[in-house]
Design a binder for these strands. Sequence first.
DNA 1: GACCAAGTCA
Length: 483
Amino acid sequence: MLSCQLLPNFFIYATLLRRCTQMKDMMEGKRVHAHIIKSGMQPDIYLGNTLLNMYANTGSVIDTHRVFDKLPQKDVVSWNTMIVGYAKHGYGEEAFRLFHQMQQEGFKPDTVTCTSILKACTGPRALEWGKHIHSHIMKAGYNVDVRIGNALIDMYAKCGSLEAACQVFDVMPERDVISWTAMIVGLAQHGCGEEALQVFEQMRVEGVEPNAVTFVGVLSACSHAGLVEEAYGYFSSMCHQNGISPVGEHYGCMVDLLGRGGHLKEAEDLIKKMPVEADATVWGSLLGACRTHGNVELAECAAENCLQLEPKDAAVYVLLSHIYAAAGMWGSVTKVRNTMKERGIQKEPGRCWIEVENKIHTFVAEDRTHPQTEEIYAELDKLTGQMKEGGYVADTRCVMHDVDEGEREQAICYHSERLAIVYGLISTEPGTPIHIFKNLRVCSDCHTATKIISKIVRREIVARDANRFHHFKDGSCSCGDYW
DNA sequence: GACCAAGTCA
């Protein structure tokens, strides 16, 4: 296209730039940019924003900001594009800084700005930020916009406030398939599988046609609620009643569901029967199930398939080594670790954080860097004693060291979750709920321990791990131990 | 002609 003799006009440049939507398209995007510069044309505001969007989708935030600074003229679309770019790259704080800066420079946020900034609400401050944006939305009268409503449901569900998500959903003047799907997914992520299915039934009653994504939510709700039979029913009605052909994600949910329920053979058979090639996610689900149900042989097969598709996925190596450790196969644990080292793959360290009086406190396992370390450890030891009196026995299967049982128990008792919870207990009023966040999935022993702690201290403990919420109360968890 | 909303595993 570019080699044609006629000088390409803005429309052609914009079309070429819009094709660059992923990181792999960056070189192509830069070539078009270089061509524009060479042609001596001064891009108008539309082309400038298209260029900015190309960098935001394919490049680094630094490159994007450079283009933004050089734009001859900016409008609200330019600011929105920047906010989206930062949010996508995980720089929530930076997105919020831009949100304030645009207003200081006299640009009024529109509905697109608001839906975009809601995406940037992640991490420990997210709920506070989200509420701030929500009040901004109400003042501007944007709350009647269906996209705004949808983004609010998603934000509140992801930030831990399921009640607020339901409230937004309930008062929406108009709902589309995305509103319903966001609500179903939100409920499923909070362990409310049954409620999610009720919402789905209500959606059908109201005559809203579910789509393929809705069924991913429905199947994931079944998975988290342990409803195997129901899932088969929904899977079949999706194909026959709604005419939706299942894709990899639907099979992924089914494999996950069967695996969690211990039907490992059925899960493996389903993978073999899939009409589409199983991706790393599907094999990852099976691998996770093998850990839960302690099947070393199948785990090796699942891990091999995962690594063939995604050789650099640290989580796969970690899971496999945990499975070996649980089976006491220390030689294999060492082998996996050495392979990781040879291939330069590093595990993300487990971290937990809690907000107390507007300050974030972060902990890693066996952390002794907090100023109140002595107090935290003394309280945790006291609590562990009470837990043992109540029948708690440490489940050390996830400890990777080949050391004696005493040391393994020691390692587990000072996991980051427990340090964060205990810090929450000693620094907040009795009876108030404690919210903690974890970058990885919560380990099974900490899950058991947290249930017992919630009963002993009579507090609700809400934990957001890498992919869902756990609400611990009176000795049990909203996930029903199914996560 | 440019920017925005929902998804499984770890």
